[in-house]
């Protein structure tokens, strides 16, 4: 087991390096194709050459390779790696903040919303899947199947905006007009987006929206798996032994049905932690997804590279944890 983990961790290195090179190449190509982003900071006010030079140097955008389209800028990449090895991810284009500071400040929000979304999707998703799977062909089964199809069919930006406009704003305003209604609900849970006064409550709805699509996938996966396993020999045996129905479902059927679900949930956790670009922007959550979206728009290469590298790392760790969890769920799986 130990050796397996070490081997997997060593595999991270080429993956992360590859990711970083790809990011470096794409952002450099972006600058080569669209020009020095420093110029855009000044807009209509033409800066003096001295000013352009000073700022380009400070932002590490003065390398001549950034003007040669297609040049992979290997030298710049090497420099970047050396800096990153010393935990220096560079500074942002607008505001000239350390990228590590930016990520450090944004991460707690992303963790919070990801946690809410994850608990929601795992808990409700598995519950819905189990209930539907046990009553295959019944009303509940059809209800879960149809509602999850609907959720999967609606893109997250549509769902997010509809919920913000109709639930948080319109419905919320009805409740807010009533002074006797508890404020934690009307102003916290139903806030139009993240609100510093209610650091957890106002992230509740964004978290649900974030978890919605994965919830549908989790529910369907659990359901299919359950339907299959309910008819399995060992379940019939357990029932014949006279075990409690709760134990049959919980320990025998569900546990064995969870393997594909855990894979999907683990990958999802990585995705959620990597920042939800769309949901965070719609609900104004100051997490890394919102920062990533903004930085991509302004051509802020250092920030984009920092965030995506971090996201790749989180994703890899989440995947590793999933693989280890397999062994816990299914004793037949051994890592040697």
């Amino acid at each position: 087991m130990g050796r397996y983990v070490i081997r997997r961790v060593l595999q991270f290195i080429p993956t992360v390096l590859g990711t970083m090179f790809l990011l470096h190449y794409l952002t450099s190509l972006g600058i080569q194709l669209t020009g020095n982003p420093v110029r855009a900071l000044f807009g209509d006010r033409t800066p003096t050459p001295a000013m352009m030079a000073a700022l380009s140097e400070r932002l590490n955008l003065n390398d001549p390779c950034l003007t040669q389209t297609g040049n992979p800028c290997i030298g710049l990449f090497g420099e970047r790696l050396v800096n990153i090895a010393q935990w220096d991810f560079g500074i942002s284009l607008t505001g000239q903040r350390e990228v590590t500071d930016i990520i450090g400040a944004a991460l707690p929000y992303t963790i919070r919303i990801a946690l809410i979304g994850f608990v929601f999707e795992a808990f409700v998703g598995i519950l819905a899947g189990v209930l539907a799977g046990l009553r295959s062909g019944g009303f509940l089964d059809y209800f879960v199947k149809i509602s999850t199809t609907l959720i999967i069919a609606v893109p997250i930006f549509v769902l997010g905006i509809v919920i913000r406009e109709f639930v948080a704003v319109k419905f919320g305003n009805q409740l807010r007009a009533d002074p006797n209604f508890p404020e934690i609900i009307s102003r916290g849970f139903l806030a139009a987006g993240y609100k510093p006064d209610y650091p957890w409550a106002s992230l509740f709805i964004p978290g649900l929206v974030l978890g919605a699509t994965s919830l549908a996938v989790t529910a369907r996966l659990t359901r299919t798996s359950m339907v299959e396993n309910v008819r399995a020999d060992y379940v019939r045996t357990a029932r014949a032994k006279g075990l409690m129905p709760r134990r049959i479902t919980g320990v025998h059927t569900l546990r064995n049905s969870l393997i594909p679900v855990v894979t999907s949930l683990g990958v999802d956790l990585g995705v959620l932690m990597g920042g939800a670009v769309v949901t965070e922007t719609i609900f104004n959550v100051p997490g890394i997804g919102r920062v990533a979206a903004q930085s991509a728009r302004t051509g802020d290469a250092s920030v984009v590279i920092g965030i995506v590298t971090l996201a790749a790392l989180i994703f890899l760790v989440a995947n590793l944890l999933v693989d280890i969890l397999y062994a816990v769920l299914d004793p037949r799986i051994r890592y040697e």
Partner: peptide, 9 residues
């Protein structure tokens, strides 16, 4: 980060 989110607020 987005004026539409601000307008909703």
């Amino acid at each position: 980060a987005d004026d539409n989110a601000g307008y909703a607020a």
